[in-house]
């Protein structure tokens, strides 16, 4: 649910990074934080455990610039990936405008990826969203590791609708901005359709 303020001439949109535990959602946000100009970003907030596992969410506000005199702001959120935080994940999806599904490319994590994708679909449906209708992209992360699944295989398992997908190595930033840009673009084009 975007928030369009004609008074302050601002558009705020919410993008959520979803995926199984340790797939690199927080790392995506950390890289974006590192690489944006100070005047474009707010604080990166991480509600994490002592062992740096996301407990509730990470949050990064990003002001990208102006479109037709309107300040465009994206609020980036991650969900906690671990299975037992299901209740928290549901809450964070509230009012989402676009979703990035981050998948762990390691073969042994394929089951976790599929489980998380299923969880995403269920949680979206509960809020009245359908994944096919939402601005959405898939990121195959950790491509630099040995023993990763072939892309063809991953697309078959995790991208049945054939949406845009990206290879990524989040710690070094490969694919990070490309993925964000893809979903941000879809979100803005969605606004164009409605307003």
């Amino acid at each position: 649910m975007s928030f369009i303020n004609y008074s302050s001439r601002e558009i705020n949109c919410k993008i959520v990074y979803y995926g199984p535990g340790l797939c690199g959602k927080t790392t995506n946000l950390q890289f974006i934080y590192k690489k944006t100009n100070p005047e474009q970003k707010g604080k990166l907030i991480s509600l994490a455990t002592e062992s740096e596992r996301t407990l509730f969410f990470d949050f990064l506000p990003l002001a990208l610039g102006d479109i037709r005199g309107f300040k465009v702001r994206f609020h980036l959120y991650t969900v906690p990936g671990q299975v037992f935080y299901a209740a928290s994940r549901k809450l964070i999806l509230k009012g989402v405008d676009g979703v990035i599904f981050v998948a762990d490319s390691q073969i042994e994590r394929m089951e976790a990826n599929m489980e998380s994708l299923e969880d995403l679909k269920i949680n979206l449906a509960e809020q009245g969203y359908a994944i096919e209708k939402l601005p959405y992209a898939v990121q195959y992360n950790k491509r630099d590791l040995p023993g990763v699944a072939p892309l063809e295989e991953m697309n078959k398992l995790l991208n049945l609708n054939g949406v845009q997908w990206f290879e990524a190595v989040a710690p070094t930033g490969v694919g990070v901005f490309e993925t964000l840009k893809s979903v941000a673009k879809q979100v803005l084009l969605e606004l164009k359709k409605h307003y």
Binding site: I11, G65, I67, F70, V72, L188
Partner: peptide, 20 residues
């Protein structure tokens, strides 16, 4: 109808690319 002129009607791919 719309109460005010929409800033989005004219959004182009180029506008979006410029943001990045």
């Amino acid at each position: 109808g719309k109460a005010a002129e929409s800033p989005f009607a004219e959004i182009s791919d180029e506008d979006i690319d410029n943001l990045f």
